[in-house]
Design a protein around this nucleic acid. Structure first.
Lengths: 137, 137
DNA sequence: AGGCAAATGTAGCACAGGCTACACATCGAT
DNA sequence: ATCGATGTGTAGCCTGTGCTACATTTGCCT
């Protein structure tokens, strides 16, 4: 019986990564927007992600359920402590990936776009390797 | 009015990447399984991806709808020409990403896991940069 | 204060991608 | 030839993530 290549749990990890991706993207964006303009409204996120405000609304509901943000009707969105923590680690990881791509010769705009997708699939080990590479430069 | 960092279309690209991810993973897996054992059955894919055979079934239906595979009741799954093409480019890209991660010092198992998630977000430009890096070694 | 524009909320729809439970088909071994 | 194990198919459910259309609230301007 021919042995099939085993990739046990790798795909499971990719799937679970996906579940946290949007949360990371949102808290990151919320933190950015708060930094830039003081408060974050749903409409800002809708513009950022190029989705309808309805989609933002429901995503924010999930984030609230999961303890990353607090909201009140018609009020700005606020990050919880957990939300801020997640935003910070996401931002840092994002920055490392972005700088790393630049360092291996990828152009600014492709690096920006790719790092957006890649950051969520970078394990601590790979992140460390990227950091080490940047330090060696 | 404070200018919010604009990331126009970056997130849109990530979203559209996601739509093709599963297709790429599946055709890649199908090609691998056919190479290893001659034919690919739904049950093989269920084991590979650690999902139920029902999920496989429906994913395969979408792949058939999209022209990547052909199926018949109780028969093995066959790749179409388009499916084989997609599988090949996915496999190559996957291999480059995997080798690249190894080259920057990531361990075998983390590289295997991460490349699974990363490969789908690597633009041609970044892929070329990775290839160039590997050639320089 | 009144009214308009912008922001937010709500209802209801679609599709992807998970699942369990159960029904039916196929194939190999006796 | 049948029977049991294994593989497939079907029904029906859930969640996430997208949408349009419409209702409501806010906030600003006159």
């Amino acid at each position: 019986m021919a042995t099939k290549k085993q990739k046990i749990n790798r795909h499971s990890r990719v799937r679970s990564d996906h579940r946290t991706e949007l949360a990371e993207d949102y808290v990151e964006a919320i933190a950015d927007i708060v930094d830039a303009s003081g408060t974050c409204r749903a409409v800002d996120l809708a513009q950022q992600f190029q989705v309808s405000h309805v989609t933002v609304n429901r995503t924010i509901s999930r984030l609230e359920r999961d303890g990353y943000v607090t909201t009140a009707p018609y009020a700005p969105i606020e990050l919880t402590k957990a939300g801020r923590r997640l935003a910070e680690t996401s931002q840092q990881r994002h920055e490392v990936v972005f700088q790393f791509l630049l360092a291996i010769g990828v152009g600014e705009s492709a690096a920006a776009a790719d790092s957006e997708g890649i950051e969520h699939h970078v394990s601590p080990e790979t992140l460390a390797a990227m950091k080490a590479f940047l330090d060696e430069q």
